[in-house]
Design a protein around this nucleic acid. Structure first.
Length: 843
RNA sequence: GCCCCUGUGGUGGAAUCGGUAGACGCGCUCGACUCAAAAUCGAGUUUCCUCGUGAAGUGCCAGUUCGAGUCUGGCCAGGGGCACCA
């Protein structure tokens, strides 16, 4: 320290070792302190930590360290979401084994996280590809099976006929396999499903209790679950058949002017048998895009089948269409069309010249007001026989009651949510613990592997040279004995969706006995997770599956928790400028140097075009490697940058000057710490006040995850200390600044703590030190600045002692020369006084 | 197409309740220190003008209010989500 600079290259590793040695961050389940479970979404070990991880984990780390300083027993674990396709892709491309590739990546990434000094409980670390993890997962799968929540049925997959393999949706590009380029086929396979739909109601209701989740995420889940209530009823057809339709607006039944069925509806198929135009139309419906935006803008097309559907009340025959906008998967695959009160039906009716009848109006005297577009809002029923005069909800109830009483329909709740297909025809996943016994005389069918034979482990000697599922191809692995009859049997070669791995890892972090997945009592102690932090890309699937899995385990009696994540935070991405060379190729930041307002290529000085600020991605080369910047600036500067400026839910633009500024501030604080003088005497009330205001503000900012604000407060406090002359209060302020900065810059804080002699005096690390106490008396200013406005415009400010009574304030304001000049003799009509804030004079 | 979010200086953003818009950082300008540089420190930095005791200003247009970045209505732009869901 001879050159009086903080040296992260030596300090970082030294304090990381000290924390590990003191086992500072190992959570004690036996502790009596209030618990705090802080969790960031665990990473997939793709190779290296990227800057987005650093931001995510820095946020959780600040909260974890802060909670510890506030006296909580903190659980802040880390592990690896280690199963998944990239490992198999690496195996195919580089000839490495998925397990070896994954474990190497984990070792690299663990070391990277450790270099950032995160306060993680590494004693609880695990990877989901450990048999000790996925074996317990198999046991839980059997629990769900016993509870009737697991079943098998045939379902379509994307089949690549060249690679002889099943493709994920993301592996299908423009209808072709991403590797082979062959057109993808739909193939029916028997697959495993979890009955998430059995929990639809609970998952929807539960959203209401998650007040500390972003509104946006709750809304997305609500839409995904998609509950609707309506009437399912039958139309008799002119050919003697009948068709079931479902409507959420059965109250508008008297406005129905047609019936539409999906192209793959049996009625449509039957028509197509005798009518080749219908067949052609059905074929045409199968083409075209499937995304919502494409479908919305696609023309609404129909084919008149010539059939009539008898209206249950008017007995009129409504035409039956095959329509491209009706989906077989939802409801009954058939709808009644009410053009007056559904925009899509309105467009359809206009196109095919069908009657448009108003049956809801704002008031009865508007019953015959013309319709220029569908009116789907509230109103009073008209032209609707016995429903006339009712409001929409009443009419809905009345029509459902009548349909049920007369037996031609019933009220029904329909969900968009579908059961969760968990079969993956892949190697690198949790083996599904079942065997198929296929003895010649019928066999025992699909039989669970007995629990004492778990885990069913993956074979290690697999080859990826040939396409297809290596488990299926393995010479011996799948051949086994039936646990029931002892006869020849075949192991299930599908593995579980990796979303299952991440659906209970937070339970295993809380409790990890060897003989069972977790201990319910210990889980109850830690759960729910008090703060969960991750990317918004997991807003629906991961978070919904984890909620479902938790509820399902609770239903099996394994748990006493309904909602696993009490509070959720979704952080923004890290972005960076993009650069392009003259030939249009992307350049990495290291290949570009700045010269005034121009950007030049380092190697040859040719001009570089500055592109948009975008999410860091390898393809655009606008990436920054955490290791490089840690080596250059130290872990604390990197952490500080990740927390500065941008609100955590928004994107954070990476900039070289920004990180340099952070590194500068690290040194500035270091210089400040060295001015800590325990012999200084004398008061500095203003600085003491600033100090205590900072303690309160930084604490509140961290608790509300407003890290950018906490950072700004620390800059302010540092500025105030800089300007203050030596005093006992200044010494306290320096010590306080160190403690307030400690969750964000822990290495610097420890180094300063030792340099100040506090480590020796308190006998401990900052990591174990308590958060400073706020003196409420010092939060209040003695003097306040009062804004003086004339007709709402600022004309003057007054500095007055606090608690000056209103009449006196008013008098002071009116006495102001600037106010008098501004009033220019006009009579004062009214004066508004906001104590401690302002005086507004209305003339 | 529908739903949601976001628009504040050159830039990232502050402004907890409707009460002094622009805290704090970055950048830039000027200065100090130095033989010089780095590092550091200090001052300035919304815009406009007639440079004042001035005017305007938080995407645009209205409105409510003594007072609007903040509330209401209508637009515009950018981003995200999606379900033709009957």
């Amino acid at each position: 320290m001879s050159d009086n600079r903080f040296d992260p290259a030596s300090a970082d590793a030294r304090w990381q070792a000290a924390w590990a040695k003191a086992r500072c961050f190992e959570a004690d389940s036996a502790s009596t302190r209030p618990k705090a479970y802080v969790l960031e979404m665990f990473p997939y070990p793709s190779g290296r930590i990227h800057i987005g991880h650093v931001r995510n984990y820095a946020m959780g780390d600040v909260l974890a360290r802060y909670k510890k300083m506030r006296g909580h027993e903190v659980l802040h674990p880390m592990g690896w979401d280690a199963f998944g396709m990239p490992a198999e892709n690496a195996a195919m491309e580089k000839g490495v084994h998925p397990a070896g590739w994954t474990h190497e990546n984990i070792a690299t990434m663990r070391a990277q996280l450790q270099r950032l000094g995160f306060a993680l409980d590494w004693s609880r670390e695990f990877a989901t590809c450990d048999p000790s993890y996925y074996g317990h997962e198999q046991a839980l799968f059997l629990d769900l099976h016993e509870a009737g929540l697991v079943y098998r049925r045939s379902s379509a997959v994307n089949w690549d006929p060249v690679d002889m393999t099943v493709l994920a949706n993301e592996q299908v590009v423009d209808g072709r396999g991403w590797r082979s380029g062959a057109p993808v086929e739909k193939r029916q396979l028997d697959q495993w499903f979890l009955k998430i739909t059995a929990f639809a109601d609970g998952l929807l209701e539960g959203l209401g209790t998650l007040e500390h989740w972003p509104e946006k995420v709750r809304l997305m889940q609500e839409n995904w679950i998609g509950k609707s209530q309506g009437l399912q009823f039958r139309f008799d057809l002119s050919n003697g058949d009948s068709v079931e339709v479902y409507s959420t607006r059965p109250d508008t039944i008297f406005g129905a002017s047609f019936v539409a069925v999906a192209p793959d509806h049996p009625v449509a198929q039957a028509v197509a048998m005798n009518n080749c135009d219908a067949g052609k139309f059905i074929e045409r419906c199968k083409q075209g895009g499937t995304t919502a935006a494409e479908l919305e803008t696609a023309e609404k097309l129909g084919f008149d089948t010539g059939l009539g559907a008898r209206h249950p009340f008017t007995q009129q025959h409504l035409p039956v269409f095959i329509a491209n906008f009706v989906l077989m998967e939802y409801g009954t695959g058939a709808v009644m069309g009410v053009p007056g009160h559904d925009q899509r039906d309105f467009e359809f009716a206009t196109k095919y010249a069908l009657p448009i009848q108003r049956v809801v109006a704002a008031s009865p005297d508007l019953a015959d007001a013309p319709l220029t577009e569908a009116e789907s809002g509230e109103g009073i029923l008209v032209h609707s026989a016995f429903l006339n005069g009712m409001d929409v909800p009443t009419a809905k109830g009345a029509i459902i009651a009548r349909a049920e009483a007369e037996g031609w329909g019933e009220g029904k709740t329909v969900w968009r949510l579908r059961d969760w297909g968990v079969s993956r025809q892949r190697y690198w996943g949790t083996p599904i613990p079942f065997v198929h016994c296929a003895q010649e005389n019928g066999g025992c069918g699909t039989v669970p592997v007995p629990r004492d034979q778990l885990p069913v482990t993956l074979p290690e000697d697999v080859d990826f040279a040939t396409p297809g599922n290596p488990l299926d191809r393995h010479p011996s692995w799948k051949h086994t004995k039936c646990p029931q009859c002892g006869g020849e049997a075949r192991r299930e070669t599908d593995t579980l969706d990796t979303f299952i791995n991440s659906s209970w890892y937070f339970l295993r972090f809380a409790s990890q006995p060897a003989d069972k997945p977790f201990d319910a009592a210990e889980v109850a102690q830690w759960l729910p997770v008090d703060q969960y932090i991750g990317g918004v890309e997991h807003a629906i699937l991961h978070l919904l599956y984890a909620r479902f899995w938790t509820r399902a385990l609770a239903a099996c009696g394994k748990l006493d928790v309904q909602e696993p994540f009490a509070s959720l935070f979704t952080q923004g991405m890290v972005t960076h400028e993009t650069y392009r060379a003259g030939d249009g190729s992307w350049l990495s930041p290291g290949e570009v140097r700045r010269n005034g307002d121009d950007y030049l290529r380092v190697e040859d000085g040719t001009p570089v075009t500055l592109g948009r600020v975008e999410k860091m991605s390898k393809s655009k080369k606008n990436v920054v490697d955490p290791d490089t910047i840690i080596a250059r600036h130290g872990a604390d500067a990197v952490r500080w940058f990740m927390l500065s400026d941008s609100p955590p839910e928004r994107d954070l633009p990476w900039s070289e000057s920004g990180i340099e500024g952070c590194a500068r501030f690290v040194q500035r604080l270091w210089r400040l710490f060295q001015q800590h003088d325990s012999n200084a005497t004398g008061e500095d009330r203003a600085l003491a006040r600033k100090t205590h205001q900072s303690i309160a503000a930084v604490g509140e900012d961290i608790e509300s995850l407003g890290f950018n604000k906490a950072v700004a407060r620390l800059y302010e406090l540092a500025g105030a200390i800089d300007k203050a002359p030596p005093s006992a209060d200044r010494t306290t302020a320096i010590r306080t600044a160190l403690l307030l900065a400690a969750p964000m810059m822990p290495h610097l804080a420890e180094e300063g703590w030792a340099a100040m002699g506090e480590a020796q005096r308190t006998g401990g690390l900052v990591a174990d030190a308590p958060w400073p106490q706020v003196d409420p008396a010092l939060l209040v200013e003695d003097e306040v600045t009062i804004a003086v406005q004339v007709k709402g415009k600022l004309r003057d400010t007054l500095i007055v002692p606090k608690d000056v009574p209103n009449p006196e304030l008013e008098a002071l304001a009116l006495a102001s020369e600037k106010v008098q000049r501004s009033l220019d003799g006009a009579p004062v009509r009214k004066v508004i006084v906001v104590p401690g804030r302002l005086v507004n004079i209305v003339a």
